[in-house]
């Protein structure tokens, strides 16, 4: 495609008629004022600790914010997945009970998650980085870079560049009553594999969506704990072999990764 063709594509695709939106300035002002109040509230809530009503209009998952590199971290190979993964997956068919029980115990966030730690925390970043590195597929572990979340307060996420694939891992608040099962699996179940597992001593549901081969994704729902985990690979199309089900579940259902993300995210 010639570059001038791209201009033609946009010129042809761009709508000539734009729908009229009623009182857009007023709506933007109202939303801006609400954000300003939230910001003032958060600023006044204390050093780095933000009180957030989880049941409010939170975004369930994927809270990476704008992301910014924190270090050129560690280009050392990630090493093989830990043999101590205490993960049981049950592809395709939901099970009624987990087949293994994790022996590690990690402090869990309070059930309400009313206090969420600021995500802009280098120490927490390093904890997540260390844990995730241990869980990454060794074949792609040669070039890692951590981007830490910088905006969202309702979750914690990290992104890693692995060759030409960016792997994103995050944990955040999830309210099944509010969010339902907000994944692409609901819209395209034919490209979805589901299962259950035990993570952080809770039974969780997971959904692996591969309808978009360039960006497979794994959603993990801890309905009881109100936690959602998300593992994404993006854009996988340029990769020789984008992470698949085994790798995604391996990373996403890794106890150490989950513990590190929760520790980084929550505070008491």
């Amino acid at each position: 495609m010639e570059e001038q063709d791209v201009g033609r594509v946009f010129a042809a695709a761009a709508p000539e008629t734009v729908p009229v939106i009623g009182d857009l300035p007023g709506r933007a002002r109202a939303l801006g004022k609400r954000r300003r109040r939230q910001r003032a509230f958060m600023t006044g809530a204390g050093a780095g600790v933000t009180a957030v009503a989880v049941a409010g209009a939170v975004v369930a998952l994927g809270g990476f914010g704008s992301g910014k590199p924190v270090s050129a971290t560690d280009a050392s190979p990630a090493g093989p997945p830990s043999s101590s993964w205490r993960v049981t997956t049950t592809p395709a068919t939901p099970s009624t009970a987990p087949s293994t029980t994790p022996s590690t115990t990690h402090s869990m966030p309070k059930s309400s998650y009313s206090f969420l730690q600021s995500t802009d925390n280098p120490v927490a970043d390093e904890a997540v980085l260390t844990a995730v590195k241990a869980a990454l597929p060794s074949k792609d572990g040669a070039s890692l870079r951590l981007n830490r979340a910088s905006e969202d307060k309702n979750g914690y996420g990290a992104e890693f560049t692995m060759g030409s694939t960016v792997l994103g891992i995050s944990a955040g608040s999830y309210n099944p009553n509010v969010h339902g099962t907000p994944s692409q699996c609901a819209a395209d179940p034919s490209h979805c594999t589901k299962g259950t597992a035990t993570l952080q001593e809770r039974q969780v549901r997971w959904e692996y969506y591969y309808g978009d081969p360039s960006a497979p994704t794994l959603n993990i729902y801890d309905d009881q704990g109100g936690i959602g985990y998300l593992v994404t690979a993006y854009p996988g199309a340029q990769s020789a072999q984008p992470p698949g089900l085994a790798e995604m579940t391996g990373v996403g259902l890794n106890e150490q990764v989950a513990a590190a993300e929760l520790a980084a995210w929550t505070t008491r």
Binding site: A12, P15, G62, F64, D188, Y209, L230
Partner: peptide, 30 residues
């Protein structure tokens, strides 16, 4: 970009034609 990164796995990008009348180009091309 931020919105997409936050919501990318929950939304289905729509390829629907705009619901306002277009002119100058056939709707199937659009």
């Amino acid at each position: 970009i931020d919105t997409y990164r936050r919501r990318r796995k929950r939304e289905i990008l729509s390829a629907a034609v705009p619901d306002v009348a277009g002119t100058g180009i056939a709707s199937d091309v659009r």
